[in-house]
Simulated assay, not measured.
Amino acid sequence: MKKKWIGVLTTISLLGGLLAGCGGAPAQSGAGGSGSAPAANSSQGGTAAATDEYQEATIRLAYNLPQDHHISKGIEEFAKKVTERSGGKVKVQVYPAGQLLSDKEMNQAILTGGVEMGVNSTTLWASVVPAMGLFDVPFALPTSYELAGKALSGSVGEKLNAEMEKKGAKVLLFADYGYAQFANSARPLTKPEDFQGLKIRSIGHIPSVMIQAYGAAPVFMGAGEVYMALQRKTIDGATSGTTAMVQRKYDEVSKYLTVVNYAYLEFVLAVNKKYWDALPPKTQELLTTTAKETEDWIRQQAEAEDKKTADELKQKGMEVYVVPEAELPAWKEAAKPAWDEYLKTAGDLGKELLGDLQNIK
């Protein structure tokens, strides 16, 4: 009975989002307004005769990030390019910023075909594919954007996509959010022992195990609640990327920023596998090629945004401590319980993936 009601609620949510798209706000949005995303080239995709070869299709794509986020800009441009390169035959209708689905509804909607495509965090996908929790394992990924990208473009990305396909979703691209840091209002966090007794807003189960291992208490709450919680001292600090810290004005309610790059926050653009398999090969090729271009652009932006926003938080008055590379092994060793927790759920594949990451050079 519970499953039946979940299905009914998901259907109501989707219908509500579609009606909203047909009402005030347009269902298909542009590619950010800043012009910072790579411009679509309508000449790409061949001549008019070539675009006539595409079969007509309308693909709904939902995401929850703010529209001015670099991932959002990349996704919007992806949709625009696909539509233009197909001569309008393959239309990608974008539902941004939670207009159609919340992040908690997204995965189920993609898996059941309630929506054809969607963007969601690997942290949330880990409840479906435990191996996806890899990106939350402290200090597992290289602290280098280039090497992280190499891992995702190689065996690590291939193995994760294979697991996703078994569940009914195909990964079209990995969208780099950036590295995770710590902000707090209590004191500088220069070593794991400094966390003792603090209350830290966490972003997932595995990071929570790390926070506990450091002697702090993890607290779960929505991203939109963090500012008020910091302001009211309900929590002492929070972990997130610096892009989100700037967007949510953490500098107004937190004094200290610790740059430690403990996790590489990742999102994926996934498509329902049955829907994908039914698409003509020419359309699949168009989507795959455009997704690869978008993935590369988003990765470049993640690196630029991390640097820019960390500098911005410093300029706004936060005291920034960058953990020296020589001290990272101590942080990693103290976070070992989080590694054990990941292996407990991800099993042999998790162990294999961690091994693959250690060999990335």
Rank of each mutant, 00 (worst) to 15 (best):
S43C: 10
V259E: 12
G215Y: 00
A330H: 12
Y256W: 08
K351A: 10
A180H: 07
G317V: 06
P138D: 08
A50C: 04
W5E: 15
A37F: 09
T288A: 04
G157R: 10
A278N: 11
I211C: 00
P329Y: 03
A162R: 07
A57N: 03
A335Q: 02
A48M: 07
V92R: 05
D68M: 13
P280E: 09
L15Q: 10
Q315G: 11
Q358K: 15
G168I: 04
M210E: 03
G16T: 11
G347L: 05
K351G: 13
L147S: 09
V8L: 10
E116Y: 00
M1P: 11
E285K: 09
T47I: 02
G154Q: 01
A151T: 11
A48E: 12
S36G: 10
G98F: 07
E303R: 06
K91R: 12
I71H: 03
T83Q: 02
T190K: 15
A238Q: 12
K91P: 08
L286T: 00
I6K: 15
D251R: 13
Q231M: 09
G23W: 14
D176S: 08
M1G: 12
L152C: 04
G114I: 00
V119K: 03
A346D: 03
V268Q: 12
E158A: 15
L313F: 02
S43F: 12
G16C: 13
L18Y: 13
K104M: 07
K273I: 11
E76A: 14
A48K: 11
G45M: 07
G46L: 02
P188K: 10
A278S: 15
A49V: 09
S72Y: 01
E116M: 09
E305C: 03
L313R: 00
P66Q: 04
K150E: 15
A20S: 13
S86E: 01
F174P: 01
E327V: 08
M228E: 06
A223H: 10
S34G: 13
D68Q: 14
T123R: 13
A151I: 10
D176Q: 14
D306F: 09
K73H: 08
E84N: 07
K73N: 15
Y275Q: 07
G347S: 06
D277F: 02
M164V: 11
D356Y: 10
M1A: 14
T289D: 08
G87P: 08
E158I: 06
T58V: 09
T283D: 01
Y342L: 13
T345R: 06
M132F: 14
M164F: 14
Q44E: 11
R85S: 03
Y256G: 13
